[in-house]
Design a protein around this nucleic acid. Structure first.
Lengths: 223, 223
DNA sequence: TTAACACTTACAGTTGTTGTAAGGTTTGTA
DNA sequence: TACAAACCTTACAACAACTGTAAGTGTTAA
């Protein structure tokens, strides 16, 4: 379940927000003490933060900037002010969307879903130094070229990239591909490795996968 | 071809950058007069901006903030300073990546490609009010659910969403699907509409596509 | 040299997508 | 109401992509 943190000092609005979001199936956590709100929010590691700009101690702007500096995900800013200046300011500080009070619950939900989807889409580019792998659609980008990988090829490649330059054990690949390590036929993994290498050959990357005899496979960095 | 704008006052570095990027196949435009650099950059409408932080008139920070406020795409910040504070500041102002001089050309290229890919991936979520369509992988998001669409279903849905609430002419759909309007069989479009509706039915959205007798089809907004 | 390990290729089953064909349903008008 | 045009639905077959099986070939290290 996706967790959302609400940063809001007004009790009524806070509880209303919590209601709306929990009804929608989100796990909600509220920040009401604003002494060390930044740490509280980060340690909750939510999928999204709903942040009011008008807060007692820290200004919402500061929290926004602080959160983004710590690599926090999507932030939806809430405010009663209706000034373009504030909106631009917040967006520049890293807020991802902006909603003016009063707002319709459906609009809030829609914005939140949009942000969550957007962020889910963003973090799919796995970096391997001189090439990137789109985890979502299994497309490998090398320079200006790109090649599509099949599902199995993608699973293997993801494991190799994430582990690189360590070795990925055969057993782990069996687990990832067929959900079990009590495999019957060792050959099927070799077949899939051959297929992956043949695909990588199209972008002259096949020699980057090394076999570690008796153990598994390894992606060599080529940065 | 993707266009990159370079904002750099040092002549030597500027020309080196231009060289590197053009060799890589990008179309490069340099900003050397910094009187109204913001307007110059925006009017060039580049795919990416390489921005030096140390500039004569405006500070790089100001340009960065200004560009992001105008909805500019990816910004890669370049600097000789090696201070965390600057980096955080720039990233908070909207810069998407950060490179310290001196840098290796390959690293610069890699970062640029990464940013371009990331942004290319970001703008795939087509908004239709109460649901979203991922143009890239043809997945439709409704609330917490999602359904995959086939290639043809995706093409039709994209056209409907983009045109909504206007009517999409049958002829246009024929063009999008089969690249020609001198179609032989009218039925094949109906079959594909049926299939799309059946898919949409899984998320109770099929009644949103209305038939406009003799003309085409229409997506009704449900916001 | 040899046995374990790894690689390659061809084949067939499965699945998803698409166009064709045939027949049924709806709609507007006379 | 009758009817024809427009639209809808379903079943079928062709096709392509992906995957596992099987059989044979190549490589490595003791």
């Amino acid at each position: 379940m996706e967790k959302i943190v609400i940063v809001e000092d007004d009790v009524f609005l806070r509880e209303e927000l919590q209601n709306i979001l929990e009804k929608e199936g989100y796990s909600v956590e509220c920040i009401s003490s604003f002494d060390n709100s930044l740490e509280d929010i980060v340690s909750a590691s939510p999928s999204l933060v709903v942040l009011d700009l008008n807060l007692p101690k820290l200004s919402g702007f500061d929290i926004c900037r602080g959160l983004k500096a710590k690599g926090m995900g999507p932030i939806l800013v809430l405010t009663s002010r209706n000034r373009l200046r504030d909106e631009l300011h917040a967006l520049n500080l890293g807020a991802d969307d902006y909603l003016t009070k009063p707002f319709h619950p459906k609009r809030l939900i829609a914005r939140i879903q949009k942000l969550l989807h957007l962020y889910a889409n963003m973090q799919v580019l796995l970096d391997a130094g001189d090439f990137q792998l789109d985890e979502k659609i299994n497309v490998l980008y090398v320079g200006k070229n790109s090649i599509p990988l099949s599902e199995n090829e993608g699973i293997i490649m993801k494991a190799l990239v994430k582990a690189s330059p360590s070795v990925v054990k055969k057993e782990e690949l069996f687990n990832l591909l067929w959900g079990s390590s009590d495999y019957v036929d060792e050959n099927i993994l070799q077949v899939n490795m051959t297929r992956l290498r043949k695909s990588l050959d199209k972008v002259e990357l096949s020699n980057r996968i090394k076999t570690v005899r008796g153990i598994g496979y390894q992606l060599i960095r080529g940065d």
